[in-house]
Design a binder for these strands. Structure first.
Length: 560
RNA sequence: GCGCCCGUAGCUCAGCUGGAUAGAGCAACGGACUUCUAAUCCGUAGGCCCGGGGUUCGAAUCCCUGCGGGCGCGCCA
């Protein structure tokens, strides 16, 4: 993969292993291999602190260990100019300038594949996200969760996991009846404006729209028909219509799910009872004060949780237990749940649940996504779900576009609240991070257009390599090559920590270096051979930008 | 009251499984378009990493504590 970086890690591992053997550590010395790219040039192109992390195991001082590592370090590919031991025990690697060019071959010989890797070893992962109740349109907060889940899924897929995207539909329980009744009342209101809309129902504007559509379809057929007679039909109708709207919203946001999983299906199939029965056999279920409880405290939850209420109706949590059991039954090795941060109180009980089923805690990773504060021109936009006045995902996407919305959602760690300024997101200026990156791509595309007009035929061949080694000598060029080489490691790190925001940060850095290079140097000049070599570099930069934007679900435009 | 998350430049945030001189964008100030797209670039300025203890060769990062902010604490979904 990343040419230079991987070679160094490989050689380091071998060197350390051989020290381990001679020091009577027959198995590999446990260590965390970190290879950083220091900012300061005097610290080399790469640096590692392994010698210091090994002090405890080897019981020697770090500089001694570093010397041993350096002594045993082999460089079969001849990529290292020199190694230095510095400070308390860092080993700094200075890479031969020409070694960087290898990265061009990595990228250009198989462009679409560059960055993809087999970290996941083909293990199956399910990413469950959005899963908003089908009681109203998606709002902007759901949009953040949607972008996060979608990109995590793409990322894991690029890293060698087999990934499915799933949406859990909470279509069971009383809320569907409330939903149906809400439509019913809005519908009756069309005939009798004095009718009072009862409390505790969904009073959003979308419900009035739906009532009007319903009227257009069915006319006065259900006017003054008692609620009890038509409630199931109204509920079904409303649920289906709203779900369809959600699906359209997500579709236009660039998101496709592999599976839509119905909670009601769990009830119908009796899996909830079955799940509880299995847990009971293992001793995790007991009766208390008329209710049925799950002993989640056995696994670190702060208190036990009710699964069947005294009135005989099972709780949402019971369904969620059955749901996660079902997920594992479908043979996923790893589950990733994307939840709103307001659900963090449920994390412990869910983890307890899967452990009671015999799974490891790590088999379920829960990513919490914090709130989105919507601003317009720096001022907060009032949002209140209860009053039904919220800004929908659709409105935001219509206003600022899919690309800007997705990019902004992803430029922050998910557990940090996000300010989303509508005015900022749609200004076509340098305030807007997504344009900065897209602009670089469009610029590069233009270079190739002009190059073609001037008769530079660009095609990558290994023969070009030698040419590039001789011509791409500027520090900025080497820097760009190095950064291109860091792309796979960025994806790996991002996937391991389930932090998609690392990708936009990487992109920004890469693009910034490119813009700077572009402003100071001509890619297409009088020197034909130099121009060709620079075109190779440009092609690689363009490719990595396109690949990264592709993962983010953001377009890489050819013109702006 | 208890639990979780957060506190880093004027603003918005990276960096947090301990590593070398703490970074970026915006805002401010000064510069660069006859050239492949100025939606760009170059430069300047900006810091008690909330306070206080501790752990060690080394702390923005880990532990304790105080302060400040957000969220959650149902036999709701």
């Amino acid at each position: 993969m990343a040419f230079v970086r991987d070679k160094i890690i490989e050689s380091l591992s071998l060197a350390i292993a051989s020290i381990g053997e001679s020091a009577n550590h027959p198995n590999q010395v446990p260590f965390s291999m970190e290879l950083s790219a220091p900012r300061a040039a005097q610290h080399g192109d790469y640096a590692t602190n392994v010698a210091m992390t090994l002090t405890r195991v080897l019981k020697r001082n770090p500089r001694q260990i570093a010397e041993q590592i350096v002594a045993r370090f082999e460089d079969p590919h001849g990529i290292i100019e020199k190694m230095e031991i510095a400070g308390p025990g860092f080993i700094n690697f200075f890479v031969k300038p020409r070694a960087w060019v290898g990265i061009l071959h990595e990228i250009l010989s198989d462009p679409l594949h560059y960055g993809r890797q087999n970290l996941g070893l083909g293990r199956r992962v399910q990413v469950e996200f959005v899963s908003a109740n089908p009681t109203g349109p998606l709002h902007i907060g759901h949009g953040r969760g949607a972008a996060t889940g979608d990109v995590l899924a793409s990322l894991l897929s690029a890293c060698g996991y087999r990934v499915d995207r799933e949406y859990y539909i909470n279509d069971a329980g009383n809320q569907m009846n409330t939903l149906g009744a809400s439509l019913y009342y809005r519908y009756q209101e069309l005939f009798d404006e004095s009718m009072e809309f009862p409390q505790g129902h969904y009073q959003g504007e979308y419900m009035k729209d739906l009532a009007r559509e319903f009227f257009e379809e069915f006319g006065e057929r259900y006017r003054k028909v008692p609620l009890e007679e038509v409630l199931p039909a109204f509920s079904r109708y409303t649920g289906e219509r709203i779900l369809k709207g959600i699906q359209e919203d997500l579709n236009d946001f660039g998101i496709r799910f592999d599976n839509w999983f119905s909670e009601q299906g769990l009830h119908d199939a009796g899996v909830i009872e079955k799940t509880l029965e299995e847990l009971r056999e293992k001793g995790y279920i007991y009766e208390h004060e008329g209710a049925t409880w799950f002993r989640s405290t056995d696994f670190g939850d702060e208190k036990d949780r009710v699964v069947i209420r005294a009135n005989g109706i099972s709780t949402y949590f019971a369904a969620d237990l059955a749901y996660h059991k079902n997920k594992f039954f479908r043979n996923y090795d790893l589950l990733v749940d994307i939840w709103g941060a307001d659900h963090h109180g449920y994390v412990d009980r869910m983890l307890a649940g899967i452990q009671a089923m015999g799974r490891k805690r790590e088999d379920l990773q829960i990513v919490l996504v914090q709130l989105v504060n919507l601003l317009r021109g720096g001022k907060p936009v009032a949002m209140s779900t209860r009053a039904g006045e919220f800004v929908t995902l659709r409105e935001v996407v219509n206003e600022v576009g899919k690309d800007a919305a997705r990019y902004i959602f992803l430029t922050r760690r998910s557990d940090s609240p996000l300010d989303f300024d509508l005015d900022l997101a749609k200004t076509q200026s340098n305030d807007n991070p997504v344009f900065y990156v897209q602009y670089a791509h469009a610029r590069l595309c233009r270079v190739f257009e002009v190059g073609q007009e001037r008769g530079f035929s660009f095609q990558w061949s290994p023969r070009q390599m030698e040419e590039c080694m001789q011509r791409l000598t500027l520090p900025q060029e080497r820097m760009l090559l190095k950064m291109l080489g860091e792309y796979p490691a960025t994806l790996a790190s991002s996937a391991r920590s389930l932090e998609p925001h690392q990708i936009p940060y990487y992109l920004h850095e890469l693009v910034s270096s490119f813009h700077s290079y572009y402003n100071q140097n001509r890619i297409l000049g009088d020197d034909t051979q130099l121009s060709k070599a620079r075109l190779c570099l440009a092609a690689a930069v363009k490719q990595v930008i396109a690949n990264a934007l592709g993962l983010l679900g953001v377009d890489a435009p050819h013109r702006m």
